Lab assay of single mutants.
Amino acid sequence: TYTWNTKEEAKQAFKELLKEKRVPSNASWEQAMKMIINDPRYSALAKLSEKKQAFNAYKVQTE
Results as ranks from 00 to 15, higher is better:
1 T>D: 15
1 T>R: 09
1 T>C: 15
2 Y>Q: 15
2 Y>I: 15
3 T>C: 15
3 T>L: 13
4 W>H: 06
5 N>S: 11
5 N>A: 15
5 N>Q: 13
5 N>M: 08
5 N>H: 14
6 T>S: 08
7 K>N: 07
7 K>S: 07
7 K>H: 12
7 K>Q: 11
8 E>G: 10
8 E>R: 07
8 E>T: 08
9 E>K: 04
10 A>G: 07
10 A>S: 06
10 A>M: 07
11 K>E: 15
11 K>L: 15
11 K>N: 14
12 Q>M: 09
13 A>T: 06
13 A>P: 01
13 A>C: 09
14 F>R: 00
14 F>A: 00
14 F>E: 00
15 K>R: 14
15 K>M: 15
15 K>Q: 13
16 E>L: 07
16 E>R: 05
17 L>Y: 02
17 L>M: 12
17 L>F: 01
17 L>W: 01
17 L>N: 00
17 L>R: 00
18 L>F: 04
19 K>E: 14
19 K>T: 14
19 K>D: 09
19 K>N: 13
20 E>C: 05
20 E>A: 07
20 E>Q: 07
21 K>G: 03
21 K>V: 07
21 K>S: 10
21 K>D: 01
21 K>H: 07
21 K>E: 05
22 R>D: 12
22 R>V: 07
22 R>G: 13
22 R>S: 10
23 V>F: 02
23 V>W: 00
23 V>A: 01
23 V>Q: 01
24 P>T: 04
24 P>V: 02
24 P>G: 03
24 P>W: 02
25 S>E: 07
25 S>Y: 12
25 S>A: 13
25 S>V: 15
26 N>R: 07
26 N>L: 05
26 N>E: 09
26 N>S: 11
26 N>M: 06
27 A>M: 09
27 A>K: 03
28 S>G: 05
28 S>M: 07
28 S>P: 08
28 S>C: 08
29 W>T: 01
30 E>N: 10
30 E>Y: 08
30 E>G: 08
30 E>C: 08
30 E>M: 08
31 Q>S: 09
32 A>W: 03
32 A>T: 06
33 M>R: 14
33 M>L: 11
33 M>N: 06
34 K>P: 11
34 K>R: 12
34 K>S: 15
34 K>A: 13
35 M>Y: 08
35 M>A: 07
35 M>F: 06
35 M>K: 05
35 M>T: 05
35 M>E: 06
36 I>F: 02
37 I>Q: 12
37 I>L: 11
37 I>N: 14
37 I>T: 09
38 N>G: 15
39 D>V: 00
39 D>N: 01
39 D>I: 01
39 D>K: 00
40 P>K: 07
40 P>F: 13
40 P>M: 07
40 P>L: 07
40 P>Q: 06
41 R>G: 02
41 R>W: 01
41 R>D: 01
41 R>Q: 01
41 R>N: 02
42 Y>N: 02
42 Y>E: 04
42 Y>A: 03
42 Y>Q: 01
42 Y>L: 01
43 S>N: 14
44 A>Y: 04
45 L>M: 08
45 L>R: 00
45 L>E: 01
45 L>S: 01
45 L>K: 00
45 L>D: 01
46 A>L: 07
46 A>W: 11
46 A>Y: 09
47 K>C: 13
47 K>W: 07
47 K>N: 12
47 K>Y: 08
47 K>T: 13
48 L>F: 06
48 L>I: 11
48 L>Y: 06
48 L>T: 09
49 S>M: 06
49 S>I: 06
49 S>G: 11
49 S>R: 12
49 S>L: 04
49 S>A: 10
49 S>K: 11
50 E>T: 03
50 E>C: 05
50 E>K: 03
50 E>A: 06
51 K>V: 03
51 K>F: 04
51 K>Q: 04
52 K>E: 08
52 K>T: 05
53 Q>G: 07
53 Q>M: 13
54 A>H: 04
54 A>I: 12
55 F>P: 01
55 F>N: 01
55 F>Q: 02
55 F>K: 01
55 F>H: 03
55 F>L: 10
56 N>G: 08
57 A>L: 12
57 A>R: 11
58 Y>D: 01
58 Y>I: 03
59 K>C: 10
59 K>W: 04
60 V>T: 13
60 V>G: 08
60 V>Q: 14
60 V>M: 13
60 V>W: 12
60 V>I: 12
61 Q>M: 14
62 T>L: 15
62 T>H: 13
63 E>F: 06
63 E>I: 13
63 E>H: 13
63 E>S: 14
